[in-house]
């Protein structure tokens, strides 16, 4: 039995005229790192909310089908219980600051206080999480005094520190600098290697290709494609449907037409591109 099991999920927001997710079927194994791609409005965020339990619990609306994580159906569980296993961080970092805390260190403690972690353990968990995401030196700063990218790291750390079984991330690096983004992807990859399941909505194809196990392409609320990054991200279907792809893939496709790319499959990562373009 898969760790995440979504069956026939269709969902419509209360004030919407049409469903934003339609008949989604998806199985994800424990420890998998799955990236969700798609245009804005394709349903990425809603899928994240559905996994995190906020659809339907928080948003209400018309929900049908099954979202099951670790053997429990979201519709059967209380949201307060659900979030103990499923962590969510989303794009706008400013709105994720609790507003009740004075320093970054205390901000990150917010969730641990809520689940009753003892003080000494709390401190060591926060320190470890901050070290992981590279924000140890921000500990005593006010969360409001940080730049957008730094706030995003704080938002991510605030969820990581709670050690969820499933980590749901909706464009968590959008405001981070390029190398910072790569570092965060690497951290998430490590977490997934150590058993945490990760579902991440993202646009940054190069890092998805490098770090994710699987890619799900959404279009108009439906799954258009799913599979390994090098299958999905090189598919003609993706290009035809207006998805952005990495320069490695798009340039190799051009090169293929001019007979400058000789391999059958297109590259998605730097390494694959180097492999194919290197002079033999």
């Amino acid at each position: 039995m898969a760790f995440i099991n979504i069956q026939n999920l269709t969902y419509q927001y209360p004030t919407a005229k049409a469903p934003v997710l339609q008949n989604i079927n998806l199985q994800i194994n424990e420890g998998e790192f799955v990236a969700v791609i798609g245009a804005n409005g394709a349903g990425k965020s809603t899928l994240c909310y559905a996994l995190a339990g906020f659809v339907p619990h928080f948003f209400k609306g018309e929900f049908s089908g099954v979202v099951e994580v670790n053997g429990i159906q979201s519709s059967q569980a209380a949201l307060a219980e659900w979030v103990l296993n499923v962590g969510l961080a989303f794009q706008n970092p400013f709105n994720q600051i609790s507003g009740a805390k004075y320093t970054v260190f205390e901000e990150i403690a917010f969730g641990l206080e809520n689940i009753g972690v003892e003080r000494e353990q709390m401190k060591s968990r926060i320190e470890a999480a901050m070290k992981l995401t590279g924000i140890a030196e921000l500990a005593d700063r006010s969360p409001y005094s940080l730049s957008g990218g730094q706030q995003q790291r704080v938002a991510l750390t605030s969820i990581l520190v709670m050690q969820p079984k499933l980590l749901v991330l909706d464009e968590p690096t959008s405001q981070m600098d390029p190398i910072g983004t790569r570092e965060i992807f690497a951290v998430i990859r490590d977490l997934s290697n150590s058993g945490m399941t990760v579902v991440m909505a993202e646009h940054k194809m190069e890092w998805i290709a490098n770090f994710a196990d699987r890619v799900i392409a959404l279009k108009d609320g439906q799954i258009l494609l799913e599979g390994k990054p090098n299958e999905v991200l090189t598919s003609d279907v993706l290009a035809e449907n207006g998805f952005g792809i990495s320069r490695y893939t798009s340039t190799a496709r051009e090169a293929q037409k001019r007979n400058l790319w000789k391999k059958d499959s297109l590259p998605v990562t730097l390494e694959e591109a180097v492999e194919g373009f290197r002079r033999k």
């Binding site: 909310y49 995190a52 906020f54 928080f58 949201l79 307060a80 219980e81 979030v83 103990l84 962590g87 969510l88 961080a89 989303f90 706008n92 400013f94 709105n95 994720q96 600051i97 609790s98 507003g99 260190f105 205390e106 403690a109 917010f110 969730g111 641990l112 206080e113 809520n114 689940i115 009753g116 972690v117 003892e118 003080r119 709390m122 401190k123 926060i126 938002a155 605030s158 969820i159 709670m162």
Partner: peptide
């Protein structure tokens, strides 16, 4: 708009959990 997102953010951090709460600072 901020109110809605903030509600989600604090709920995601187990704000409504029934566990006995602890506190970082004394």
């Amino acid at each position: 708009m901020e109110v809605e997102e903030r509600a989600i953010a604090i709920e995601a951090r187990a704000f409504n959990s029934r566990q006995t709460e602890t506190s970082l600072i004394e």
